[in-house]
């Protein structure tokens, strides 16, 4: 579903990510781990077509994001690390806006909004302006908006930050459901325990270079993901 080939992104003379390649198939969840400033957000933004990149290729379901961004974006949903949404809209208007852009039929839209908003306990607040939302409520609204068109590829940048424990639990369940339906999920996180329990694959990035990538079992072996991550950090220091 997602194929990153020799991805390189430079900001002027500074190289943010260099020669990164990885593949995530349908029905797989891949955690993207690395220290702050390692290049996780840059990679995720390039994957969803927000950020142009210098070299390499990114394919979404076989389509190049560079050559046909529109076709790719129709299959993607992206959750940024900071959910800056349109504060002049109410929650339901924002969901309507996203639904219109993705051409989600009315009946399906109603069903999904009722389902996800109910599970994330945001139903009561959908009539309020987003400007009145807390960080966690905005995060929940972003999640609902992302799931509205049932994306084939879900890209998330630290999705659990700001969510309460119950919402975190619900989101993990939603991710598992989506994965069971054949969608791929690629998300960055610093919560290694969650990544270890939830993901089929893991990619570890350090200073713009991919230092480990593969199935969770092959990367961590008998160790915990935390131990592996810390070892890799030391090895490549």
């Amino acid at each position: 579903m997602l194929e990153i080939q020799h991805f390189t992104k430079r900001y002027g003379k500074k190289t943010a990510v260099e020669d990164l390649s990885l593949t995530i198939g349908g029905g797989e969840i891949c955690a993207f781990i690395g220290h702050n400033g390692a290049g996780k957000t840059t990679t995720l933004k390039a994957c969803c077509g927000i950020l142009p990149f210098t070299e390499g290729e990114i394919l979404v379901d076989g389509t190049s994001i560079r050559k046909d961004p529109l076709a790719c974006k129709k299959q993607i949903a992206y959750l940024p690390d900071n959910p800056d949404l349109y504060e002049f809209m109410t929650g339901v208007k924002y969901l309507n806006f996203i639904g219109d852009v993705f051409a989600v039929p009315k009946a399906l839209r109603e069903k999904r909004i009722a389902d996800y908003a109910g599970r994330l306990e945001l139903t009561e607040d959908l009539g309020q302006p987003i400007s009145a939302y807390s960080h966690g409520m905005k995060q929940k609204l972003s999640v609902i908006a992302a799931l509205l068109h049932q994306p084939k590829l879900l890209l998330m940048d630290e999705p659990f930050v700001g969510l309460d424990p119950k919402a975190t639990h619900v989101l993990k369940g939603i991710m598992a459901d989506l994965c069971a339906q054949g969608s791929a999920i690629f998300f960055s996180t610093h919560v290694l325990e969650v990544a270890e329990r939830l993901c089929h694959k893991v990619a570890i990035i350090k200073s713009g270079h991919l230092v480990a990538y593969g199935s969770m079992e092959s990367v961590k072996g008998d160790q915990s993901l935390e131990d592996v991550f810390l070892e890799l950090e030391d090895d490549h220091a």
Binding site: V92, D100, V101
Partner: peptide, 19 residues
């Protein structure tokens, strides 16, 4: 903010251009 109740009937489908 002016807190108000909402109903699922507010969910209206339209085109991307109108959105």
């Amino acid at each position: 903010v002016a807190r108000r109740a909402w109903h699922l009937s507010e969910v209206q489908a339209g085109t991307a251009e109108s959105a």
